[in-house]
Design a protein around this nucleic acid. Sequence first.
DNA 1: ATTTGTGAACATCTTCACAGCA
DNA 2: TGCTGTGAAGATGTTCACAAAT
Lengths: 244, 244
Amino acid sequence: MPPKKNGDLSLPEPVVERLPLYQRILTQLIRQGSSTVSSEQLAELAGLSAAMVRKDFSLLGPMGTRGSGYEVDYLLSHLDRILGTGKSWPVVIAGVGRLARALVGNRNFSGRGFRLIGAVDSKVNVIGTELAGLTVASYETIADSLAEVPSIGVITTPPETAQLATDTLVALGVRSLLNFAPSIIEAPKEIAVRYVDLSMELQILSYYASQPEGDLTTARLGTGGIQPLRDRWPASAKGPTPTP
Amino acid sequence: MPPKKNGDLSLPEPVVERLPLYQRILTQLIRQGSSTVSSEQLAELAGLSAAMVRKDFSLLGPMGTRGSGYEVDYLLSHLDRILGTGKSWPVVIAGVGRLARALVGNRNFSGRGFRLIGAVDSKVNVIGTELAGLTVASYETIADSLAEVPSIGVITTPPETAQLATDTLVALGVRSLLNFAPSIIEAPKEIAVRYVDLSMELQILSYYASQPEGDLTTARLGTGGIQPLRDRWPASAKGPTPTP
DNA sequence: ATTTGTGAACATCTTCACAGCA
DNA sequence: TGCTGTGAAGATGTTCACAAAT
């Protein structure tokens, strides 16, 4: 009787977008030797309010201890489980250009449980070349070249090819897509799609660059988000903001 | 008497994040020869509701004509002005690795009014090399190597160097920052900062990949956002969704 | 007749403030 | 006492529904 597997917690998107941030901060805290942390400290490090940190964690169940805060280990292991960290997700990338090569070479890719199991391209001079030890397949042959169903598809094609890439990746069985191509893609609604769009980001920034001056304090933090309120993470190794 | 220059309209961030999307769609429509478009058609193409499209545009002033819709040219030129498109923004990039090279080689970078005027790195074997025709400077020499104050800074350093990059770029006078490094950076609050974080995006997707199945219809569209509602952009050249 | 522009209703997200527990 | 967990309040964002304009 498997009544409720506990990876299946459904969280609001804004919360999901903050979890990796918490995860990163907690990992740093562990490396620094902290064993507990308060919502206030975490909020400071994340650039959020303490209330929001508590609300977020409260959605995951009772995570902390009243009076003394959150146990870093425990909290982190929970986040890891919810985010599926350490699960070695099989990834297929469509569109093998400079961006693809930069991404798979990135330590955050291979170093964090994402395993490239396939690469596709449509250009004949790219098909057959190597990417991170794999041979780049064509759109016709990719399905046969995989030994495993991929979970995540990454699209780094030109915009014209993005829909073909989407359809192909969906047919391969991916559950979620990360689209770097500057075009809107059509995918079944049960597939999670996220857009990362350089040109849009630059355009958003050029809006803010042309704004008169004033505060940006209205804004939120997110994957793309404007710098929030007060002072931020002391990125140099200074310890977790010793509140005096 | 310059009482109110009209680039200084202050818009809610969600709206700002949608404007580049509208801009892109309108550009496509022009290429396809459409001269007017209704909020409903636009909504379909953008994957949004017609009401939201109208609300967004209404914030820019009276943009449309009742009974016949929006004139594509007019609307687009407005968006271009608000977003500062065509202004040739001077950009400095910090951290010259594979990602930096992929970004500046991208047609959305150079092709859309972003002009690389400087590149910095801390590694001796990178300093002095070329990037898009520029010689990579060191953090000590970058200030003197620029002929112009940059508007936008792009950070593609490893996380350890992100704060140094931030401080340096801010000192150079940038108004906004695009941070690809997986770390939170501390910048004066009048600087707009946006984060683009591959590892966070992948982690968010791995959360959705481990979700049971069900709809993702709760979600929003954004720079990073989950696929919204119904059917989407027909990416192939099929004309703007001929409503029967 | 058609489609914008918008106040009001609704939904969602964040903060407040404090009860509950260690 | 100190800090979490949470209902209620507040802020922000989206949709509804219709009046106004052509």
